[in-house]
């Protein structure tokens, strides 16, 4: 069954983190003229002509927890499921779905909504509903631990 790890409600830290994410998206638009969608940047890191900044952006994402460790003395709090077959399936679905649907939480969720794109709004409504339904089934229907 799916264990539930309790988490605290952190409105201010979450708002601050969201503003940082937004600032990064604005940097990417102002400097490179591109949408800061992580899947798009990942694909382009392999295939695009302007792959230099994309590879560096992903290196920055990977470097962030190391900087956090240097500044605070500990890695950020994180609980990742140890159910490896489920995580493999999750990764496969996330990769396939975001490539097919042309965007993820950042590309459609942040940048698309900020551009008032109807396509992104439809994508966000769909993936939020499917994600919430998946958690509901796992935790409350399939004999979940909650």
């Amino acid at each position: 069954m799916l264990p539930v790890t309790p988490t605290d409600f952190t409105p201010w830290a979450s708002l601050g983190g969201g503003i940082l994410i937004g600032l990064s998206a604005v940097m990417v638009m102002a400097l490179f003229g591109r949408i800061a969608g992580i899947v798009g940047i990942t694909q382009g890191a392999v295939t695009a002509a302007d792959r230099d900044w994309r590879i560096a952006f992903i290196a920055g994402l990977i470097g962030a927890p190391l900087l956090w460790l240097l500044a605070s003395g500990s890695f950020p709090a994180q609980t990742v499921s140890g159910n490896l077959p489920m995580m493999a399936l999750a990764g496969l679905l996330v990769g396939t779905g975001t490539a097919l649907g042309s965007g993820c939480t950042s590309g459609h969720g942040v940048c698309g909504l900020a551009r008032l794109s109807p396509r992104s709004l439809a994508a966000v409504a769909t993936f939020m509903a499917c994600a919430a339904l998946t958690v509901f089934v796992l935790r409350h229907v399939a004999g979940g631990a909650a």
């Binding site: 990942t42 490539a99 097919l100 950042s106």
Partner: peptide, 16 residues
């Protein structure tokens, strides 16, 4: 694509 992504996100809690 968004539906598949949502299911995967709900399973693992990770987006890209």
């Amino acid at each position: 694509g968004a539906a598949l992504f949502g299911i995967g996100w709900g399973l693992g809690g990770f987006c890209p």
